[in-house]
């Protein structure tokens, strides 16, 4: 094993995902500890140009027609070969719809450990957030190559931008694929584009029933904004997917993000952490969103909404 740190670059339809730059920032912290090089691993077809802004010592570029679009088994095969042959000290993947598919299977295939949900490297320790952000865990690098999946929060994407780095082509072999991409299905055209709203009244599990959404809508109407939601509300079918904020939903940066009954799991925070003013209203004093918000109110939201509506009406 050597001391190098790999960062598996995520890209989709010609765009490098922000998590890739965040991983490079974390990888730089870890490489400083191990004394190795920071290598970005870029897989694709005609994708070399995506290496341009990667703040890595080196880009290992694996080109193959089967890697033109992401599929879990093509990526897994390519990376299993690369990692077992070169044995880096650690390899970062996004804790994303792309990275987790690959990191988990590689861990089992190569029998090496996987540390998930890392938000920060601190003094060489891998700091993870589990239990919806309510528990932190610190893990050391193992004696073998350690795989790490990364969530946003501890670094800004700008910290991982730089370059252009040296690009080194590496051979990758991919065969007998069991997964194939048929097509991409574009998101439905939304009645409201929540990424463009200045005010979002965002609702979570705490809203309890579909009927209660009208309370949030009343607030949104008064403040000239729209209602958005965390995943559980959308999974219940109470609001369309286009209103979902978070990992699989939209990333929003409104002037005001008023969160009603949203606990603040990392998957949700990922979509709204950059909002200018976050106010969290939650009955649970331990809700992780209070660690992200500027202002917090620890009350039953149903006790607060009516007085709040009255106060806004009086102030207008």
């Amino acid at each position: 094993m050597n001391n190098d740190i790999y960062v598996v670059i995520e890209h989709l339809r010609g765009q490098v995902a922000d998590i890739s730059y965040i991983m490079l920032a974390a990888g730089r912290d870890l490489a400083r500890e191990t004394g190795g090089k920071l290598a970005a691993v870029l897989l694709g077809q005609n994708a070399q140009a995506l290496a341009e802004n990667l703040a890595a010592d080196q880009v290992l570029y694996g080109e193959n027609a089967a890697l033109a679009e992401f599929t879990s088994d093509a990526y897994q095969q390519a990376l299993a070969g690369l990692i077992s042959e070169n044995q880096p000290r650690a390899a970062f993947f996004g804790s994303t719809t792309i990275g987790t598919d690959v990191a988990g299977t590689l861990s089992a295939r190569l029998n090496i450990p996987l540390v998930s949900s890392c938000s920060k490297i601190s003094d060489g320790m891998i700091v993870s957030q589990i239990c919806g952000g309510k528990i932190m865990a610190e893990t050391k690098l193992a004696d073998t190559t350690t795989l790490i999946t990364m969530i946003p929060g501890g670094y800004k994407p700008e910290q991982g931008r730089g370059g252009p780095p040296e690009v080194k082509p590496v051979p990758v072999s991919v065969a007998d694929l069991k997964v194939a991409l048929n097509q991409y299905i574009e998101p439905e055209v939304a009645d409201v584009d929540i990424t463009k709203e200045k005010v979002l009244i965002s609702i979570g599990r705490g809203i309890q029933t579909a009927d209660n959404i009208e309370l949030a809508q009343a607030l949104a109407d008064l403040l000239g904004g729209a209602v958005s939601a965390s995943r559980p509300v959308v999974d219940q079918g109470w609001l369309p997917t286009s209103r979902m904020v978070g990992k699989s939903g939209q990333r929003v940066k409104p002037k005001l993000y008023l969160a009603l009954g949203i606990s603040g799991a990392p998957e949700h925070v990922e979509g709204m952490a950059d909002a200018e003013n976050i106010i969290a209203i939650n009955i649970d004093p331990g809700a992780p969103l209070f660690d992200v918000a500027k202002y917090g109110v620890n009350v039953d939201l149903f006790d607060l909404i009516d007085p709040l509506i009255e106060a806004i009406e009086a102030a207008k």
Binding site: A17, T96, K178, V179, A180, Q183, T241
Partner: peptide
């Protein structure tokens, strides 16, 4: 149907 950020879906076939 596999979910990607921003509401994008990838339709995939799995053996």
């Amino acid at each position: 149907k596999k979910e990607y950020p921003g509401g994008l879906i990838a339709e995939m076939e799995v053996a």
